[in-house]
Amino acid sequence: MSVLVFADTRGAKVPKNTFETLTYARKIAAKEGSTVTLATFGDAATDKLSALDANKVIIARSLGDADSQQLTRFVAEVAGKESAKWILFSHDDTGKAVAPRVAARLKAGEVAGATTLPNEQGLIKRNVFSGKAQAWVEVKTPVKVVSLLPNSIPVEAAQGSATVEEYSGDLGAAKVTVKATHHAGEGIPLPEAEIVVSGGRGMKGPENWGPLEELAKELHAATACSRPVADMGWRPHHEHVGQTGVAIRPNLYIAIGISGAIQHLAGVNGSKVIAVINSDAEAPFFKAADYGIVGDAQQVLPKLIEAAKKLNAER
């Protein structure tokens, strides 16, 4: 019996959410007295894989830009071989496409976007109504599929000494093929960011984003925006957060010139700490904030940048 983790290990650095999923797996394995197997694909070096906190790594090297059908066949087959009772994913781009497919293929119940480990009754929590409520989910099947919402549990994964096995089965050809990848920019990708600095219509125009970007840089933060800001073309669409954009849950969300409409809050209310800068003391966002400043964005921003620079110089 084992806990199976699926993760993408391609690229220079193993992303943080892989360590989160491995931590989750370790905790379940410890409770159930089982081992952790990691299923992955691509060209990662063997020593990089064996350093991960798993007992065994199974890698399908024949898969490069694999599509969700190939990955589903792969994970389902490994799950069968390893008699996995738990199949864990990160609720990221790949996990969102593969976890539900694996669940449907194996007729296993799925918790999509889990935010907790199972409690004593085996129930797992997830966000519903765009973060305005949470649900405790019971999975009724013996095999359970969970995709873990990034930034939900602290990483505890240790240095591992996993055995690495090469998978050699036939997974068929990819039907979805990647034709090109355009690098969108130098900044930190929004869904992975621990700190996010976000601007709304109160920023008054795209020409005023310089200081906001500078603050983000000083704080190692990603930048985001409200929906009208993306709709007016002041900022790219992928920065739009909220109910109809990206949902994020960073450790810190700094909202500048954003009123705090319910649809905006829905995408950011999972943030651990929220700081709001708005010229209107009555702006609804202050009710959802931990820290607030009533003031003009363009006057407050330079003060924040200066303080951030000072802090960076001190540490």
Binding site: G109, L123, Q134, V139
Partner: peptide
């Protein structure tokens, strides 16, 4: 295969 057995609302925010 799965059910949401119970819902809860997030705890109210502390004062800003």
């Amino acid at each position: 295969l799965s059910t949401s057995v119970k819902f809860e609302l997030p705890p109210p925010k502390q004062a800003v």
